[in-house]
Write a protein that binds this DNA or RNA. Structure first.
Lengths: 266, 266
DNA sequence: TATTTATTGTATCGTTATGACAAAATAAAA
DNA sequence: TTTTATTTTGTCATAACGATACAATAAATA
């Protein structure tokens, strides 16, 4: 078998894993920028179809590992906050329930230069199960890379997310729902913000996740009461107003707080 | 289709075949009796091995359906509180990581008459991903039934649970951890207690789940404040003390509260 | 019948958490 | 020097909470 062919098969495995296999993982990779929460989406070649980055689990690999691998392949980031949030296995996930979409997929695969492009789409009639992971990243540190079957890999503001492949919109919604619950057990800014940030930035992040405004002074009071922030010098913004302090997380205090798992709510 | 292309497809199939996995579900069925929380376990035939009841997802069946099916097969109960809590897919779940246990399983399977090929399960070669569900039931309404591979099906007090097959002890622990979190989003007594119960019984249930004592009068105050209980006549216990009232859940108020998803904590 | 016992139902009290709002501080512009 | 916009800190009434006390009561006991 030629090297090229092996590469092609390997790419297919990674990308189409969720259709070919019974098990796959899908990543809801959330980044934060410009006071907005964004999600990383892949655009398929040739057609206007977007989907969550995903892949499947190699034989000697755990599910968590697979999710980390996909994340690294798409963003270049390692050692990232990544958490399983739900497994989707309804009968309706079967490809044959979405014939039009399957036809589109068929067109895409036919145009991709591979020697074995006449794939038997009987594969598509299998029931498949995918496990969702959400990741929180500082998107300015990422370098999004499309995979073999994608022509681009872009950050989308949550409000603008288009219709996605299969049930990926539902998966995204579930990820956000779970993230909001996690917020009560875990302060999350540490992985979404740059190392030093203003209290306003942290509040805007929480507001973006919760999709509702929070009261400024009460937010500050509660956040400081957690005793996981370190205050640094002020940041001179150049604006005609009082300059805000910069804060960063105290990693060890942060970790012990997470360890204790104390619930706090917003 | 050319011979070469057919070869390519076969190569792909073979390659993918290496990655074949099995999906299963495992149920942590919790019952409450005698002020104790109990879990339903199966004892395998011929050997002293216990495990959680579980099963495979049939071809045209969703994962949730499969869990309901297993639950009904084991307990006779339908329309039950049943919730997915986590999916276990670490590399270590592969049978080949537990050779002694696999040898035991092999002995068991050899003694069981196997007309049915499905029973081979591929336990010794495939990697397993299992999704855990927890169920809450009134155990006095159940009729535990062992399955084909089990010789008994019994309720075990949580404190007495023996070492279980594979990572089932971890799965049980995770189920309890998740249940305790759910407790803050959902009053759960409705499915674990008989229709009418005393406040003391409800408190004992919460204490059993949380594994810590709760303050009596404050528990009563909070629980009544939820406004989902109906008070009935007193229950004459025959003991030399004040007789307690009986309560039951107001189903519609209960449902609307769950709908609102209001958080309350103990 | 009167008293005792054990448990239940409810009230109280001090502390803390919370939401809404107000006031002081301050960097830069006018 | 004053104005402007935003941050930081403070206040205050209310609600929630943990701890404790006390009253109510069904049955046993004297």
């Amino acid at each position: 078998m030629t090297e090229k062919k092996i590469q092609g098969i390997h790419a297919l495995e990674n990308r189409l894993g969720e259709f070919l296999q019974e098990n796959s993982i899908d990543c809801v990779i959330l980044g934060y920028d410009q006071e907005e929460l964004k999600v990383l989406l892949l655009k398929w070649k040739f057609e206007d179809i977007w989907s969550l980055p995903g892949g499947y689990i190699h034989k000697m690999e755990g599910m968590d590992q697979a999710a980390h691998r996909v994340l690294e392949e798409r963003t270049g980031l390692t050692s990232i906050f990544l958490r399983q949030f739900y497994t989707f296995g309804s009968a309706g996930r079967n490809g044959e329930h979405r014939p039009e979409e399957m036809a589109t997929m068929r067109r895409i695969l036919e145009k991709i230069p591979m020697e074995n492009k006449e794939l038997d789409f009987g594969w598509f009639t299998k029931r498949f199960v995918t496990t969702g992971y959400f990741a929180l990243v500082d998107l300015r540190r990422t370098d999004p890379n499309p995979d073999f079957l994608s022509e681009s890999c872009e950050w989308w503001a949550l409000d603008d997310v288009p219709q996605l492949l299969a049930d990926h919109n539902e998966i995204l919604e579930k990820a956000l729902e779970q993230l909001r619950i996690h917020l009560n057990y875990l302060p999350i800014g540490i992985s979404l913000l740059p190392q030093k940030f203003t209290m306003r930035a942290l509040q805007k992040l929480y507001e973006a996740i919760l999709a509702r405004p929070l009261e400024r002074s009460n937010f500050q009071r509660k956040m400081l009461a957690l005793d996981i922030l370190v205050r640094h010098e002020k940041q001179m913004t150049g604006a005609a107003n009082k300059a805000p302090y910069l804060y960063s997380f105290d990693r060890s205090k942060y970790d012990t707080l997470v360890q204790k798992g104390i619930g706090f709510s917003f």
